[in-house]
Amino acid sequence: MSIVKPVLRAFDYAKAMEFYVDWLGFQVDWEHRPEDTPFYLQLSMRDIILHLSEHHGDASPGASVYVDEFTDLRAYHQLLIDKQYKYNRPGMEEAFYDPSILLVTVNDPFYNKIIFAGKK
């Protein structure tokens, strides 16, 4: 079995923590942050694993990550809304390709997009 771990570009550690940990609910599994150097870290939530890198050349801003078969998407969406994160208030919509799928799209502070998809 292969495991895919997307690497997303980030530019600010505090903003990354505010968005991914405080708002979305990811946890930091490990980080590499020597003094006066760019950070690199792994985040996880449920079975989702993401890497964030501040290193030039590791990734380009503007990536999209599609999270398929996200369980309890309605409850997760409500949790995000209830936290009242001032920079992002995602909606929920039907997928254009399948009306039995719901989508919640969030945009991080570094122009990356995460699309959570789950059954109605």
Score class of each variant (00 low, 15 high):
residue 1 M to H: 12
residue 3 I to F: 08
residue 4 V to Y: 08
residue 4 V to N: 10
residue 5 K to Y: 15
residue 5 K to F: 08
residue 6 P to W: 04
residue 6 P to M: 02
residue 8 L to W: 05
residue 9 R to Y: 12
residue 14 A to M: 06
residue 14 A to T: 10
residue 15 K to P: 04
residue 15 K to I: 06
residue 15 K to E: 06
residue 15 K to M: 11
residue 16 A to H: 04
residue 17 M to H: 14
residue 18 E to S: 12
residue 18 E to H: 12
residue 19 F to Q: 01
residue 19 F to I: 00
residue 20 Y to M: 02
residue 21 V to E: 05
residue 22 D to E: 14
residue 22 D to Q: 13
residue 22 D to G: 07
residue 23 W to T: 00
residue 24 L to Y: 04
residue 24 L to S: 00
residue 25 G to V: 03
residue 25 G to I: 04
residue 27 Q to A: 12
residue 28 V to P: 03
residue 29 D to Q: 07
residue 29 D to V: 13
residue 30 W to N: 09
residue 31 E to V: 06
residue 32 H to Q: 11
residue 32 H to Y: 14
residue 32 H to R: 15
residue 32 H to M: 12
residue 33 R to Q: 11
residue 33 R to M: 08
residue 33 R to A: 11
residue 35 E to V: 13
residue 39 F to S: 06
residue 41 L to G: 08
residue 41 L to C: 09
residue 41 L to I: 05
residue 42 Q to S: 09
residue 43 L to C: 03
residue 44 S to T: 03
residue 44 S to K: 06
residue 45 M to Y: 13
residue 46 R to F: 13
residue 46 R to M: 11
residue 46 R to Y: 09
residue 47 D to N: 14
residue 47 D to W: 05
residue 48 I to N: 06
residue 48 I to V: 10
residue 50 L to Q: 04
residue 50 L to T: 03
residue 52 L to Y: 03
residue 52 L to R: 00
residue 54 E to N: 11
residue 54 E to W: 02
residue 54 E to M: 06
residue 57 G to T: 03
residue 57 G to D: 11
residue 57 G to Y: 06
residue 59 A to E: 01
residue 60 S to W: 12
residue 60 S to F: 15
residue 61 P to V: 04
residue 61 P to A: 05
residue 62 G to I: 00
residue 62 G to F: 00
residue 64 S to M: 15
residue 65 V to S: 01
residue 67 V to C: 14
residue 68 D to L: 15
residue 69 E to R: 07
residue 69 E to K: 11
residue 71 T to D: 14
residue 71 T to R: 12
residue 72 D to R: 10
residue 73 L to V: 00
residue 73 L to N: 00
residue 75 A to V: 09
residue 75 A to I: 10
residue 77 H to K: 03
residue 78 Q to W: 01
residue 78 Q to G: 06
residue 79 L to G: 10
residue 79 L to A: 14
residue 80 L to S: 03
residue 80 L to R: 03
residue 81 I to M: 11
residue 81 I to W: 02
residue 82 D to M: 02
residue 84 Q to E: 09
residue 86 K to V: 13
residue 87 Y to D: 11
residue 87 Y to W: 15
residue 88 N to Q: 15
residue 89 R to G: 09
residue 91 G to D: 05
residue 91 G to T: 09
residue 92 M to H: 06
residue 92 M to Y: 05
residue 92 M to G: 02
residue 93 E to P: 07
residue 93 E to R: 14
residue 94 E to D: 10
residue 94 E to W: 09
residue 96 F to T: 09
residue 97 Y to R: 06
residue 98 D to Y: 05
residue 99 P to V: 02
residue 100 S to P: 06
residue 100 S to H: 08
residue 101 I to V: 13
residue 103 L to R: 13
residue 103 L to M: 11
residue 104 V to P: 03
residue 104 V to H: 02
residue 104 V to Y: 02
residue 105 T to M: 05
residue 106 V to S: 07
residue 106 V to Q: 07
residue 107 N to T: 09
residue 107 N to V: 13
residue 108 D to E: 06
residue 109 P to G: 01
residue 110 F to G: 02
residue 111 Y to T: 14
residue 112 N to Q: 03
residue 113 K to P: 08
residue 113 K to Q: 15
residue 113 K to R: 15
residue 113 K to G: 02
residue 114 I to N: 00
residue 115 I to G: 05
residue 117 A to H: 01
residue 117 A to R: 07
residue 117 A to T: 12
residue 118 G to R: 05
residue 119 K to N: 10
residue 119 K to Y: 10
residue 119 K to L: 14
residue 119 K to A: 09
residue 119 K to E: 13
residue 120 K to R: 14
residue 120 K to H: 09
